[in-house]
Write a protein that binds this DNA or RNA. Structure first.
Lengths: 194, 194, 194, 194
DNA sequence: GATGAATGAGCGTTCATTCAT
DNA sequence: TATGAATGAACGCTCATTCAT
């Protein structure tokens, strides 16, 4: 049987990751308003001071959460195969799953975008939002070339609308999760995917 | 005829209102995260302790801001006259004006709805959101009866979509005000108002 | 019998003064290294947070201690009457008294000057030191004009030497108080005052 | 002939010495108030924890700095040859050089003596100070026996004055280096060495 | 009603020290 | 010997709230 030494590098990475996730969950649950570094540390079973080994300041931790959040969000766009119609169908399928199993993601996204309106990490938020919209636009315009959507649509405007709508639904994922479902159904209708 | 001095009741009311407005503006600028009762008090020229004569706790002040915000928001729906088409046209005109001249309103709405996801004043937020959506739905269904929208629409879904879309745009009013304009234009297109 | 209401202004001034004195004494006893705002507050019987009502930051408190220290030190130079010889005699008498009854003053002066070498409040320290030296030089040169010192002295150099010597003695007031006495005796000898 | 690698004892000694020097320089630059063991360790290229292999506690490191400082200071008294006049001339020449090229030494001495007033390593400071004064007194009294100083001086008092004056000048080496030069010139004048 | 003073609880952060590897 | 990880105790400071005047 092979020796499987615990790789010390990954231990550190793991703990960093655990802290990011704990902070992420705290933000989802209590918002930035309720984020306390001590609590985050306790959640992963370490002392409040130890957290500063991994993240020099609270703000650095938050930035790591931002990256984590956008990575997860953008991963919904990865490896979409087939025709534009198939790609959008798959994308909306993933979105639906996300809303049901990981609503925290869209909540944290909302928290982050709102925070950006007050100047914190604003340019990063804008950039990530633009990336999302562009990716959708690419799929949509490919479909337009094939007259795939069953009606005339303007790719850029539709992409913007989808993004804004999903972001708006993210504001309500705890209190009114049905709003997200309604939004997704609406998108399906616009693209004649139902 | 007797002199009618500014009676003390209205003085109190005025000051309460001034405090609500100051809190509202602070939330718009810095978010709930950056709301300090002392700052609010200083903005209206009173001592931080004096504020507690008007609002027992910070939370009570915030609730008053909630009421104020929703009143202003719902006032966009007041006195809409004429046909459903005219009513929607007027409503969107008002919305456009709001976005340009008082973006704070939608920003505070976003802050508030997000906060409600963490359990604070959640039922109130749900109720106000439902009121907004219902009012729109009423206009839209009246239009449907007259085949006013140039195409087949489902009133309830359309009302929900409009509300969610505007709320989503509210997340971006500082960093990307163009998103709100795009959303409104999109709504006009759905309703064939352009 | 007259009513003697407790003047609220002086209450605030008194507490500010008490905090300055408490900080002064802490510095004398433990140095800047051992100065804790909480301890200072507790010494005057108030909560650590309350101290910040009177001094916004620790640094502001320290600056107030600096002013207090230099005022007390320079007060030794006030109202020196008579001939230059009499003035110096009186000055050294006061210095001797100070060393015996309030050695803290010269210790805090040493702490402060040393701290200034690391850049903190340096210009203030230089200015206060220059004032001290100038005042002495004025007396000494007046005496020179009257050939009062029994021998030829160079006023500026003598003033500088006296100041530096007293400051050096201040480094030892706890462990070797005799060094201050020796220094003063030495000065008397230079000026033929004994 | 066998290879004689840098034996481990001297490696350890070297590193200890490097740490002492680094601590010494940090104290000169930022005072005891600004001394951080981590910083000292990083300056010599080791981890903060590793420093504790060489010095069990911060206080032990500081004591080593004390010894180092006094050794360097007393080395100015080594190998003074010739007549008392020649010895004092040489001593003051060295002192002048020290002030210009290694002001840190007198600054750290001041920091250390001041710290001793608060009870830390007090007896050691007293002892070292006494040694310095005695050595000077020996030279001065030898000169007195030869009527070397051009005037009547009291060896013990003069030695004490010189030490205190130099210590006082040490308080100002950064902000007012001219004070040290003035002090040395004054000493030369007292001993008719100019 | 209005205020200055006061407070307790808590916050993000620092740092000398310990310890398993 | 050397280190990264971890910790407890503390620090300066903030803030909503209370209270006597």
């Amino acid at each position: 049987m092979a020796i499987t030494p615990h790789d010390s590098t990954s231990v550190k990475t793991d703990r960093r990751h655990a802290l990011i996730v704990a902070a992420f969950e705290t933000i989802a649950e209590r918002g930035y308003e309720g984020l306390r570094v001590r609590d985050v540390a306790y959640q992963v079973g370490i002392n409040g001071a130890t957290l500063h080994h991994y993240f020099a300041t609270k703000e650095v931790l938050i930035q790591a959460v931002l990256v984590y959040t956008n990575e997860r969000l953008h991963s919904l766009l990865h490896d979409l195969a087939g025709t534009p119609v198939e790609q959008m169908r798959e994308y909306l399928r993933r979105l639906r799953l996300l809303v049901r199993t990981e609503p925290e993601l869209l909540i944290v996204l909302a928290e982050t975008n709102l925070r950006a309106q007050h100047g914190l990490a604003q340019s990063y938020a804008i950039q990530q939002d633009a990336y999302w919209q562009n990716q959708l636009e690419n799929i949509l315009s490919a479909g337009v070339a094939q007259q795939a959507w069953g009606r005339v649509i303007e790719s850029a405007a539709m992409a913007a609308t989808i993004v804004t709508l999903v972001e708006g639904a993210g504001l309500w994922l705890t209190a009114r999760p049905d709003k997200a479902e309604a939004a997704i159904r609406q998108i399906e209708q616009w693209l004649a995917l139902n």
